[in-house]
């Protein structure tokens, strides 16, 4: 068992008149780290809550390893969704929350949980509500890792953590993932920090999937062209420019699409530097409402 595969077909969730999810069809392979990106309200948490059997789609279907997870005892104990706040019992002491999740998850690693909580000095006898935002996030992230669930979903668990803490958790995640491969879905607004951790990237916008691809393929979807502003402009005149940044006389333009080899040679000759489009830029472009029409 190296993790659960994830499949959704036309999954739709409505809250009143608004579509939180609008026909989401998605396939995520088992045993990999997948990224789920989207702006606030794009439907990320709703999608993850379907996979975690918190609720069912109003229409469409969800399957883990080919089966509907809702009320499937094996799949539900093998599926763990952690958010920074909101789902844990805030009035319980940390050690009691730990005990509950240990009770519910046969693969729970108490040693790993203790290690992480000790490292970040989390007081176990205090109730969750009396911890700082960052400490609450540490508890949630710890439970997510220590559960060792074949489908582990970490939804913005970094909220409130400071940069060194986030870094250590990313390292802990990678180390534990390497030792205990499983399907992991990470959702975060700090795209630059997790970009290289992800094997695939799925972007949701307004309840729809706008992109779901291998992270490596994504890198070739666009190019940054950096150099003298006038040369950059001349070279990118006929291309789809989605972003420009100026630093003195130097301009960096972001173009979409795979450049032609002859164009690359010419750009090189003109002393322009070509680079990969940061995922962040691609994300901003794909989820900007100006471009929606």
């Amino acid at each position: 068992m190296t993790g659960l595969s994830v499949t959704t077909r036309d999954a739709t969730v409505r809250y009143g008149a608004t579509h939180a999810l609008d026909g989401v069809t998605l396939d995520l392979a088992p045993g990999r780290i997948h990224g789920l990106l989207g702006r606030n309200g794009a439907g990320k948490t709703t999608l993850l809550s379907l996979l975690a059997s918190f609720q069912r789609p109003d229409s469409g279907a969800v399957a883990l390893a080919g089966r509907d997870p809702f009320e499937d005892a094996t799949l539900m104990q093998d599926t763990c969704l952690m958010r920074a706040t909101g789902d844990l019992a805030a009035d319980l002491k940390v050690r009691d929350i730990l005990r509950l999740h240990q009770t519910g998850r046969p693969r729970f690693d108490q040693g790993l949980a203790d290690h992480l909580l000790d490292r970040f000095d989390i007081p176990r006898r205090r109730s969750l509500a009396r911890l700082s935002r960052g400490q609450q996030s540490v508890v949630a992230a710890t439970l997510g890792l220590a559960s060792r669930a074949p489908l582990t979903m970490l939804d913005e668990v970094h909220l409130g953590m400071d940069a060194p803490t986030r870094q250590e958790f990313t390292e802990a995640l990678l180390a534990d993932f390497a030792e205990h491969p499983r399907t992991i879905i990470v959702s975060s607004h700090l795209i630059q920090e997790i970009e290289h951790v992800l094997e695939t990237v799925t972007i949701l916008h307004r309840g729809r999937v706008v992109l779901s691809e291998e992270a490596d393929d994504l890198r070739t979807q666009g190019t940054t062209v950096t150099g003298r502003a006038d040369r950059v402009e001349a070279m990118t005149r006929d291309l789809r420019v989605v972003g420009r940044r100026d630093l003195g006389p130097t301009r960096e333009a972001t173009v979409l699409g795979r450049p032609h080899p002859a164009w690359v040679t010419e750009a090189d000759r003109q002393g322009l530097q070509l680079g990969a489009v940061p995922l962040q830029d691609l994300f901003i472009h794909l989820t900007s409402d100006k471009d929606a029409a």
């Binding site: 918190f54 969704l81 789902d87 509950l100 519910g104």
Partner: peptide, 15 residues
Amino acid sequence: AQVRHYVHAGFTRRA
């Protein structure tokens, strides 16, 4: 009152 937390910890509503 704990249904949410129990489901969150991996238990089915049946359990």
